[in-house]
Amino acid sequence: METILSIKNLSKNYGLVQAVKNVSLEIQKGNVYGILGPNGSGKSTTLGIVLNVVNKTSGEYSWFGGTMQTHDALKKVGAIIERPNFYPYMTAQENLELVCKIKNINYSKVTEKLTLVGLIDRKDSKFRTFSLGMKQRLAIASALLNDPEILILDEPTNGLDPQGIHQIRDIIKHIASQGTTILLASHLLDEVEKVCSHVLILRKGEILYSGSVDSVSANQGFFELQAEDNTALKASLQRHSAIEKITEDNGKLLVYLKEPLEAVTLNRYLFERNIALCHLVKRKVSLEEQFLELTNSQSSIINHQSKIIKE
């Protein structure tokens, strides 16, 4: 599979603050990658470096297998890393035609991209009349005018209302379905889980996880169980070899697995021990829960290391 962007051991220091620490990532053609992390985790800095607007401290990156210089490679990249910035007194069409003129792109692309982002009926409306969501969609249309091989978005739904968020996500999915590679930075777990095929999770500039979204949330899941006698239920569950741990929440037992176990098999196991369930639901651990587990585990490691150093 063709490599669009390769990042190796990238670091960025701002004085004593290390914003990015040895980040590595391979962006393969046709996938949707998310860089996930809270504010200050190094997401925007990483994007700024590969877009040649932030100088790296160390490490390296290369576009399209290193076959071209960054300046030439960026001609095949579409990016939105700041708030949409167009002339307020010009219409949507006029603003995009100006971008086409600057970048030497055929004007025919304007109608095509306005249609793609759902703004063709507002092509003659002035930019100042647009909502924040419409401004963001126009920015995406502008970034797509040169038919880029990869589209880079920094917090594409930040500040939008639920309808605007839904529209942007649908547009991203549609663009991806046409074969465009996408790299987006977000602090929203839900956004990455619904839109991305791959995720890089950052915390304070360091990688906590890198791989497919399915893999990070791939787990045996857990059961929500309840019986008239939860004490007897718990005692029976603790003797099952597939069960890793049991917790309790609002009168229900949350049963986490260490190996595959189907609901019908578990129900039969309990019935044979004279336990009748009044509630049985199997759930998958969400990306949010996995993310919190990763960040909490990292915090525990850091706290433990600090304790050792102090001792």
Rank of each mutant, 00 (worst) to 15 (best):
D249L: 13
N31Y: 14
K194I: 09
T70P: 15
E26A: 03
N104R: 12
L266Q: 00
L184Q: 05
S197K: 01
N303C: 07
A79N: 04
E272A: 05
K126R: 13
V213H: 01
K252V: 15
E272D: 06
H198T: 02
A139Y: 07
L257Y: 02
R169Y: 08
R128P: 07
V99A: 07
E289L: 07
I140G: 04
S210A: 14
K76V: 01
Q305G: 01
M68C: 08
E149D: 10
V23W: 13
I49L: 04
N95L: 09
G48Q: 10
S58K: 13
I80V: 12
I152A: 05
C196G: 06
A218T: 12
I207K: 12
L160R: 08
S306F: 09
S186M: 08
V264K: 15
G179D: 06
N22M: 09
K113E: 15
S297D: 13
L114W: 01
G133H: 03
K109N: 14
E94I: 00
K113N: 10
V77A: 04
Q163H: 12
E206Y: 00
K75F: 02
T181L: 09
K29W: 10
H304E: 15
E191D: 12
E149K: 06
E2H: 13
A19K: 00
I172P: 01
T181V: 10
V213A: 03
K245H: 12
P156T: 00
G42N: 13
L116I: 03
L74A: 02
V50F: 07
T180R: 01
S236R: 10
K234A: 08
L188W: 03
L116W: 02
K282C: 04
L153N: 05
L280R: 06
I308P: 02
E293Q: 13
T247E: 14
V192N: 06
K234R: 07
S241K: 14
L257N: 00
Y87S: 09
V99K: 04
L47D: 00
N95D: 11
Q290D: 12
V199H: 07
I172G: 00
G179W: 13
N85W: 03
F86V: 07
S297L: 12
P260Y: 03
